[in-house]
Amino acid sequence: MQYSRPALLMLDYQVALCDPEANRAPALAAQVAERAVVPVAQAVLAAARDAELLIIHVRLAFDDTYLLRTNRLARFDSYPENRAMLRGSAEAAIIAQLAPEQGEPVLDKSCVDPFIGSPLLSVLHAEGIGEIIIGGVATNLVVESTARHASDSGLQVTIVEDMCASFSPAAHDFAMANILPMFGSVFSSAEVIGRLSEHAERGAA
Rank of each mutant, 00 (worst) to 15 (best):
F187R: 15
P181E: 06
A96M: 04
Q42S: 15
G128Q: 08
H149T: 15
A48D: 04
P114A: 04
T158W: 02
S166Y: 06
A99M: 06
N23T: 11
Q97V: 05
A16Q: 06
F62N: 08
V142E: 00
F62D: 00
A171V: 06
I129A: 03
A29C: 10
A150K: 02
E81D: 10
P26G: 11
V143K: 01
A175G: 01
I159Q: 01
G203I: 07
L8F: 11
T158G: 03
H199W: 10
A99W: 03
Q14I: 02
E144G: 03
P26E: 12
L67A: 13
L28I: 01
A170C: 05
V32A: 03
P114Y: 08
K109G: 01
P114G: 03
M1K: 12
V123R: 15
A190H: 15
A29E: 06
M1H: 14
L9V: 08
A84P: 01
R75I: 10
A84L: 06
S197V: 14
H199F: 10
V58C: 05
R59C: 04
H125Y: 04
A99V: 10
A36R: 15
L8R: 11
Q102F: 05
A74H: 09
I133H: 02
D152E: 13
I55P: 05
I159D: 00
I94A: 11
H57E: 09
M85G: 01
A175N: 08
R72P: 03
V58F: 09
A84M: 07
S118M: 05
L196A: 10
S185D: 10
A171F: 06
H125S: 12
L73C: 06
A74P: 00
M85S: 00
D162L: 01
L86N: 04
G117H: 01
A51G: 15
M182W: 13
F115Y: 05
A22P: 03
C18W: 02
S78I: 05
Q42P: 14
L68F: 00
I94H: 04
D64A: 13
P169N: 10
A150C: 02
S153I: 02
L98I: 08
N23W: 13
L11M: 09
G154N: 07
A171Q: 12
A200R: 08
V192Y: 09
R87P: 03
L98F: 09
S188H: 12
L196P: 08
L45H: 14
N178F: 13
L141S: 02
Y66P: 13
L53Y: 13
T65P: 14
E101T: 14
E131N: 10
A171C: 07
L124F: 03
A84R: 01
D63N: 15
